[in-house]
């Protein structure tokens, strides 16, 4: 549990961080809260010669809510997210989900940016951000660009982000309607056996918008447009919910691990997705 030796850099602004990334290329990696990266380094599964600590970069911090527009700095911690009254008010699903990540100790250190940038299918924020239709803001020495959360994830630990880019912030419009983040895990501090984020808007008894995304049920988070579509235009009755669950489970591809084999995960996923939708509908 002792990492290989590395150089430690602690730049004070984004341009200095980018300069170090440019200089060392593949041998350099940014570190945020360290609660995914440091375990990998200690297990010597990640061997990084130059570690660039982002914690002194003020530009990456803060949570801003202006009207319905929400912007979360990459270095905002999961604890800050939970502690933020505006978030609890305008995007309560984020509050509810963040409380289900790991444990308080991890959340004091772990950042929102690290959680979404990491690319681990077990992370909860990526599916959630897909459900919210969030945008990720990236910067590299070549300039800035925006990527939709729904386009960002390619495979486990493979994302659209280039090695020399830094994620600076995440933004989205405050969701409307009922919401739920359902997660089954073996214990506190565990990643999901199955998790699902659901947002359902109902107007005059009819669903006008629905967004469903899932965590740790494939090698990337899964956003199921079909599941949302199955609810839209319906009264979210049992038939519609059945159809949404069927669409969502049709989009996942879980693998066997210590949490259980595939048939178990498929069944649990169906249950968890259904509960998320039902709870979102009940709150809509």
């Amino acid at each position: 549990m002792i990492p290989a030796s590395f150089e430690y850099h602690r730049p004070a602004d984004i341009s200095a961080a980018l300069a170090i990334l440019d200089e060392y290329g593949d041998d350099a990696r940014v570190i945020a809260g360290g609660h995914s990266l440091i375990p990998m380094m200690k297990l010597r599964m990640a061997d990084i010669e130059h570690l660039i600590d982002l914690q002194d970069i003020g530009e990456l911090k803060g949570i801003f809510v202006e009207g319905t527009k929400v912007t979360i700095g990459a270095m905002a911690t999961q604890h800050e997210l939970i502690d933020n009254g505006d978030i609890a008010r305008v995007a309560p699903i984020l509050h509810e989900a963040a409380l289900q990540i790991a444990d308080p100790q991890v959340r004091y250190m772990g950042t929102v940016g690290g959680n979404v940038a990491n690319g681990d299918p077990g992370n909860d924020m990526p599916g959630l951000m897909q459900c919210l239709g969030a945008t990720f803001h990236l910067v590299g020495s070549g300039g800035t660009r925006d990527v939709a959360a729904r386009d960002y994830y390619e495979a486990a630990y493979m994302t659209d982000r280039e090695d020399d880019e830094i994620l600076t912030a995440i933004s989205f419009n405050a969701p409307e309607g009922g919401f739920a983040y359902e997660k089954q895990k073996r214990k506190i501090g565990d990643y999901a056996t199955a998790a699902c984020a659901a947002i359902v808007k109902i107007d005059g008894g009819i669903c006008t918008a629905a967004s469903i995304a899932m965590t740790n049920l494939s090698d990337t988070p899964i956003f199921s447009a079909e599941a949302g579509a199955a609810l839209e235009g319906t009264a979210c009755d049992a038939t519609a919910i059945d159809a949404a669950v069927a669409a969502a489970t049709g989009a996942i591809d879980p693998t066997e691990d210590n949490r259980g084999p595939v048939d178990f995960k498929m069944h649990v996923a169906g249950t968890i997705i259904r509960r998320a939708i039902e709870r979102a509908v009940s709150r809509a």
Partner: peptide
């Protein structure tokens, strides 16, 4: 009796 083994009993 973890989750999947209990599930397996039910199944």
């Amino acid at each position: 009796h973890d989750h999947w083994r209990i599930w397996k009993i039910a199944n």
